[in-house]
């Protein structure tokens, strides 16, 4: 018989990620299950707000949720390893692959998702810095600039780098940049494209900032109630493959879209990739110390394998 699964998604239906990641993924599931699974997609927070998606999945309000884990510090603290700044992440696709492999390899990480069934884990490429009035080339350039970031590790990193971390809600970011409430922000291409930030920010510096991650999690009971062949069919296009698809299509591919959008409007985007010596300088003040702090915090919580997880992460990313 036919099974209907509901998917709650905070991204608007016309957004880059909905069109290039969510819809293809849904299509793959429906194809892999030969039409036995029908996905009802509720984009744009119509079923549940982004901040409550994790709760909604666990409570069974929705069957599958697009979860952004940056909303919930300390809920999946070991997975947070992937958000440490200065990790050698070359692309979102690679990062998502490593994240899924970490999940498979470490029981302690699997334990963090015990109340749900993760179908895919995604992560962004490392955020870069965009600024409105001057290009950031060195640590000294960054000093004292008000940079919009989210709470947690990105805030800690900005403090360590000497910038002034500032929390501004996403809908206000465009005007905050335009009017100079903030001098810049840490961002992925997906946001530059979705919020047309190229209209207000000219300078883009590829710097070793932290990345964000999230998941597509299914309600555990609902998942367990599905026949085994359906579960296998869904996982055949999810899991490692699905995670890579999400990383690639949601984040990596958005770069070209942002560049095209800027070009169509004749906006100048000046891109600057920091030389290795400067990257090393940044990581010295704001990566290694935060890595050690993270390991220490996890060990204090009783996760003895924290160091091992960090080392495995770096090793797999360098692979």
């Amino acid at each position: 018989q036919e099974v209907t699964l509901t998917v709650a998604d905070q991204n608007p239906p016309t957004a880059w990620g909905s069109v290039h990641a969510m819809q293809p993924w849904i299509k793959k599931i429906e194809e892999a299950t030969k039409g036995r699974v029908k996905i009802e997609h509720y984009p744009g927070q119509t079923m549940v707000k982004g901040t409550e998606t994790w709760n909604a999945v666990r409570a069974g309000v929705v069957d599958i949720g697009w979860c952004f884990h940056g909303y919930w510090p300390d809920v999946t603290p070991l997975s947070d390893v992937i958000t440490l700044p200065g990790l050698p992440i070359t692309s979102a696709e690679k990062g998502s692959e490593v994240l899924w492999k970490l999940y498979e390899r470490f029981p302690a990480i699997r334990e963090e998702y015990a109340e749900t069934q993760p179908l895919a884990l995604w992560m962004s490429h490392p955020y870069f810095i965009l600024t409105t009035s001057k290009q950031v080339k060195t640590l000294e350039d960054l000093k004292g600039l008000k940079i919009r970031v989210t709470g947690g590790p990105p805030t800690e990193q900005m403090k360590a780098l000497g910038a002034v971390p500032t929390l501004v809600p996403m809908p206000d970011v465009y005007q905050a940049l335009d009017k100079g409430v903030v001098d810049g922000m840490g961002a992925p291409w997906e946001a530059v494209n979705a919020f047309r930030l190229y209209e207000v920010a000219k300078y883009y510096t590829i710097a070793p900032l932290s990345a964000v991650y999230g998941s597509l999690c299914a309600n555990k009971q609902k998942w367990d109630s599905l026949p085994m062949d359906i579960r296998n069919a869904i996982m055949s296009v999810s899991g490692l493959e699905g995670s890579k698809l999400w990383g690639r299509n949601f984040f990596d591919a958005a770069e070209q879209a942002a560049l095209d959008g800027a070009e169509a409007e004749n906006r100048e985007m000046i891109r600057y990739a920091m030389p290795t010596e400067e990257v090393v300088r940044w990581n010295k003040v704001a990566a290694q110390p935060l890595w050690d702090a993270w390991v220490k915090k996890m060990e204090a919580k009783g996760h003895k394998e924290a160091r091992q997880i960090l080392e495995a992460t770096i090793e797999m990313l360098n692979d």
Partner: peptide, 11 residues
């Protein structure tokens, strides 16, 4: 407040 960049539209 808005035009000098002191406050965001929400603030």
């Amino acid at each position: 407040l808005l035009y000098l960049g002191i406050a965001t539209p929400t603030e």
